[in-house]
Design a protein around this nucleic acid. Structure first.
Length: 664
DNA sequence: AGCAGTGATGTTTTT
DNA sequence: CATCACTGCT
């Protein structure tokens, strides 16, 4: 007979917690934090303590006895996930360290490494980035294309985008073509043939691109009930940050991960959706509740971040949108200064103004850490960077070309990939083309033989005897055939760098600069002790973004942040400069053709201004000659012109002869 | 046939 | 600045 016991019934609100949730949160946040089971959508405006809410909810779940390992927290960037993890840990204790966090892609990778057999891959599969993906598509494009249509046929980057969009939006190639590239609709069949071949190619090479990580995870969850049961039994509480930027594919994955309990909490803000180029639709977040029988919706609208003046401006910008957004932010009378609108004569003066103002702010006791300069495209900062260097202002740049993406570092990583996965023909392709006297034809021959399992690093002399005449090739094969200790990554990397240096000396003028990069790269390898982890991190979570970063001495120093708006997502600073707010640059002339793209630019502008806590400077250079349109750009962005004069304090820069000469 | 050098071209945003 | 098509070279 079963033994009956009395268990005290507690309701959530009255339970004893070590953290005082009630007083540390406002009422709206508190409700969301106390949400227990089932699906929930948290609509959280900019600066409303979205991260705080997530952090407290994780803590609350753990305090209620939920096994931390069963909590999955999906974030948009690695930065965001490590920040949340440290905040949870300091709020609660080390139990928090056991939860699973990461991006969709890194989470997918983790599962796919475990379940690779089920989807027809071996565990040594490698990840290729977008550029590798485009290069591989180009290879296949070349094979399929009759020379007669070469010019009118989409190029590799376009093809890559078409494929990626169709996967992420879960739509056919034709639909994507009709919507975004109508002039290529006539090539639908040929494009599809290329895509099918590309898919096969990756499979034989045992490589996956970014989209594959998601699509194979979806496939695994859909078609392998055993794996699905295991996974959904393990991750019982799922939280997804920045839901407005997830796409259809990710949404489907989330639904499957929800299992039968659907303990899924999605957090986001439709007004901050800025990733439509990756297949996100800002309205997706509203469809979230419809995916479930029951879904609780919480709204958090009180802004803790910004002053009243900055909020008024932000609200005004987003209210001018063609599509109506649901909320309006409010704050509790934090009066500050009106945001500044500053007109600068050309780019030079803009850079000089920003630098001068930063120096002045520093005099007033505002630290560099509390200041950020934001811009639409990473090249917008080039001139500013020169000026910052001149004035010895240390900074870190986020967004744009990453250190890891420079040609010489990618070359080196390709050698390392071959150590791990000798069938990685994407890496082969790259390193073979570097060899003197080897071009597309020879490369193709070698690669075909590797794919057929006919050729490997030890038998190339017998299989393709005439290759032996090429010293470069035999040196390359010798290098890759060396039996490196897979745990001594630095040793292997430095051997490869040594080999590579010869090529570099011949090919490049600026060998010294590149060699310094390679030395930095070798330092990075030092932090790893196993090859697979190293390669995964290089593909998905590159440890650093820019070159000048991570010099040992500059680590302690305080620094300024300069960043693309996309990379500034979720962050905040006391002082924000938004540069290049000139019509024609932001929104860029390219984005003004369709309503949707203008609206996306508007949301981007909104994200930018809502990063500011106390001071906001919107700077626009005038008198800019735009080569594309052949026009001179002199007006501030339409997002500023649309709104009333009362929201901004307007300035124009004049040069004062007496001050330290601005010219030269 | 296959490779390398040359000159015009265009260019967001990220995993 | 990197990519692409073209042309001349081996």
């Amino acid at each position: 007979m079963k033994k009956l016991r009395l268990k005290k019934k507690t309701n959530l609100a009255s339970r004893e917690y070590s953290v005082d949730y009630k007083t540390s949160l406002n009422e709206e946040q508190y409700k969301a934090v106390m949400h227990d089971k089932g699906a929930a959508l948290v609509l959280a405006g900019a600066g409303s303590g979205k991260t705080r809410t997530l952090v407290y909810r994780v803590s609350r779940l753990i305090e209620d006895g939920i096994d931390p390992r069963s909590i999955l927290l999906l974030t948009f960037t690695r930065k965001a996930s490590s920040e949340m993890l440290s905040r949870i840990t300091s709020l609660l204790d080390t139990r928090a360290g056991k939860i699973t966090t990461g991006t969709f892609h890194s989470f997918a990778l983790k599962l796919l490494k475990r379940y690779c057999k089920q989807i027809g891959f071996s565990q040594e599969f490698s990840i290729i980035d977008q550029q590798d993906s485009a290069d591989t598509i180009d290879l296949i494009r070349g094979r399929h294309l009759p020379p007669s249509i070469k010019k009118r046929f989409p190029k590799k980057n376009t093809l890559q985008k078409i494929l990626s969009l169709s996967i992420n939006k879960r739509e056919s190639t034709l639909t994507i073509l009709e919507e975004f590239y109508p002039k290529y609709v006539e090539y639908e069949d040929l494009i599809n043939t290329i895509f099918i071949d590309y898919h096969k190619y990756k499979k034989t090479a045992n490589v996956m691109d970014y989209d594959d990580l998601l699509i194979y995870l979806l496939e695994l969850l859909k078609e392998n009930p055993d794996a699905r049961t295991q996974i959904t039994n393990y991750y019982k509480y799922i939280m997804v940050d920045e839901y407005q930027d997830t796409n259809r594919l990710q949404h489907e994955i989330i639904l499957l991960l929800g299992g039968k309990d659907n303990n899924i909490m999605a957090v986001g803000d439709d007004a901050q959706s800025i990733y439509s180029f990756r297949g996100a639709d800002h309205q997706n977040i509203f469809f979230f509740p419809e995916s479930f029988e029951k879904c609780e919706v919480y709204k958090i609208e009180q802004n803790y971040r910004s002053t009243e003046q900055i909020l008024d401006l932000s609200n005004e910008i987003i209210n001018a949108a063609a599509f109506k957004y649901e909320k309006k932010l409010f704050s509790r009378d934090r009066i500050g200064e009106k945001p500044y609108l500053v007109a600068a004569n050309k780019e030079r003066q803009q850079s000089e103004f920003v630098v001068q103002q930063i120096l002045e702010l520093r005099e007033q006791g505002i630290e560099l850490e509390d200041i950020a300069v934001l811009f639409r495209s990473s090249y917008h900062a080039f001139d500013l960077e020169i000026e910052l260097n001149k004035s010895n202002i240390p900074y870190i740049k986020f967004g744009g070309m990453k250190f890891i993406e420079t040609a010489h570092i990618k070359d080196l990583i390709s050698y390392m990939r071959l150590l791990f996965n000798p069938k990685d023909v994407v890496a082969w392709q790259r390193v073979l083309m570097l060899v003197d006297g080897v071009g597309p034809a020879t490369t193709r021959k070698i690669i075909e033989n590797i794919s057929d399992n006919r050729l490997n690093i030890s038998n190339y002399k017998e299989v393709l005897p005439n290759l032996n005449k090429n010293i470069g090739i035999s040196n390359l094969f010798k290098l890759v055939a060396k039996n490196f200790d897979p745990n001594d990554i630095t040793y292997a990397a430095s051997e490869m760098a040594f080999y590579y240096k010869e090529y570099m000396d011949e090919k490049y003028d600026n060998v010294n600069k590149r060699w310094r990069d390679i030395e930095t790269f070798l330092q990075i390898t030092d932090q790893y002790s196993d090859l697979p982890t190293f390669l995964n991190d290089m593909a998905l979570d590159p440890p650093i973004n820019s070159l000048d970063e991570l010099e040992p001495e500059s680590k302690e120093e305080e620094y300024l942040t300069i960043s693309t708006i996309h990379s500034a997502k979720g962050l905040e600073w006391k002082v924000v400069f938004l540069i290049w707010s000139t019509e024609g640059k932001f929104p860029s002339a390219k984005s003004t053709h369709t309503i949707d793209s203008v609206e996306e630019e508007r949301r981007l502008f909104y994200v930018a201004v809502t990063r500011a806590k106390d001071y906001l400077y919107i700077v626009y250079p005038f008198g800019i000659f735009d080569r594309e349109s052949g026009m001179v750009l002199s007006e501030p962005s339409r997002f500023i012109r649309e709104i009333g004069d009362e929201f901004l304090e307007k300035f124009i820069l004049t040069e004062d002869e007496d001050d330290e000469g601005i010219d030269d």
